[in-house]
């Protein structure tokens, strides 16, 4: 009897310890990043770092503006492509596709969502970049090596849409049949029902899916690194090479050679990534809570 109680106690406490350890990692990483990036902030004001576009570690210049602009461009453009494609194909799969097609297509999309990003990066490097160089850039009258912001955005959107599709399929599937019947039975067509009822009723999950897609696009490192060209200059077109926050760390960590200031600057970049993801999580949480109230059925 007593040993059973003891085991129960030990079991409970062990679980608590493990959980505490995992959640304390959040603070540990944050403190680590913050403390290591203080060095660069001592000699450079945060304004200078965020708004100067000159990155020249040898001369002690660590302006991130160009990188931030590229990050916004790549992430934004990728989502701009991925969101409509994902929503429409998810709604097709759930509401319109014949049953057999629906069942066959899902595993493929789920696997796509799990393919390692380096695979996407390699494909993009070998096939997408030349295509952009030879066909797409000339079509828009631009010259490009193919290693550019545009290619990075395209490959990111391709990586993001299986995630959004997969989550949207789940949320559209969860809409009760009776809710759709309620709309259909006043004489709404299927498209009207989809547009006004299914999309609205799943708005909270769509928002969650998009945020997850944003997280993936924003933080994606290796695939972007392989096709973006690695140039730190304010871009004048999407066909310019660039560098994102995440890909910058991947390109530069090998050449640090223990220059403390350079190392500290990269830690600052990591800190920015950390904070943005955190802020987006909070924003997402709040929007989701509001949306759930607003679009409840």
């Amino acid at each position: 009897m007593n040993t059973r109680k003891l085991r129960d106690l030990i079991g409970t406490k062990t679980l608590l310890l493990i959980t505490l350890f995992v959640s304390s990692l959040f603070f540990l990483i944050f403190i680590l990043l913050l403390s290591r990036s203080l060095l660069v902030l001592e000699s450079h004001s945060i304004i200078e770092v965020l708004f100067s576009s000159i990155w020249n570690p040898d001369a002690g210049q660590f302006g991130l503006a160009a990188i931030i602009v590229d990050t916004i461009l790549v992430t934004g453009f990728a989502l701009l492509i991925a969101i409509p494609i994902s929503l429409l194909s998810a709604i097709y799969i759930v509401e319109y596709a014949p049953r057999r097609l629906r069942k066959t297509i899902r595993p493929f999309i789920d696997v796509l969502a799990g393919v390692p990003s380096v695979v996407y990066g390699l494909c993009a490097f070998l096939f997408l970049a030349p295509f952009v160089q030879n066909v797409i850039a000339p079509f828009f009258g631009a010259q490009s090596t193919g290693l550019c912001i545009f290619s990075a955005a395209i490959i990111l959107s391709i990586m993001v849409f299986p995630i959004i599709i997969s989550l949207c399929i789940e949320s559209f599937d969860a809409i009760p049949l009776s809710l759709k019947e309620a709309s259909l039975s006043v004489g709404a067509t299927k498209w009207e029902t989809v547009k006004k009822v299914v999309f609205r009723a799943s708005a909270p999950s769509i928002i969650a899916a998009i945020l997850l897609g944003f997280g993936r696009a924003f933080g994606e490192t290796i695939a972007v690194n392989m096709v973006i060209g690695g140039t730190i200059r304010l871009p004048s077109s999407l066909f310019n090479p660039g560098e994102t926050l995440a890909s910058l760390i991947a390109s530069k960590y090998g050449e640090l050679m223990s220059i403390p200031l350079h190392e500290s600057a990269l830690m600052l970049v990591a800190l920015i990534l950390f904070i943005v993801v955190f802020l987006f999580y909070i924003l997402g949480f709040l929007t989701l809570r509001r949306a759930k109230k607003r679009w409840k059925y």
Partner: peptide, 20 residues
Amino acid sequence: IPDIRKKMGLISQKPYPLPM
């Protein structure tokens, strides 16, 4: 079919207000 349905209102077992 939408015209047929318009002619026949449906009240379901559990009320389903639309999300609006």
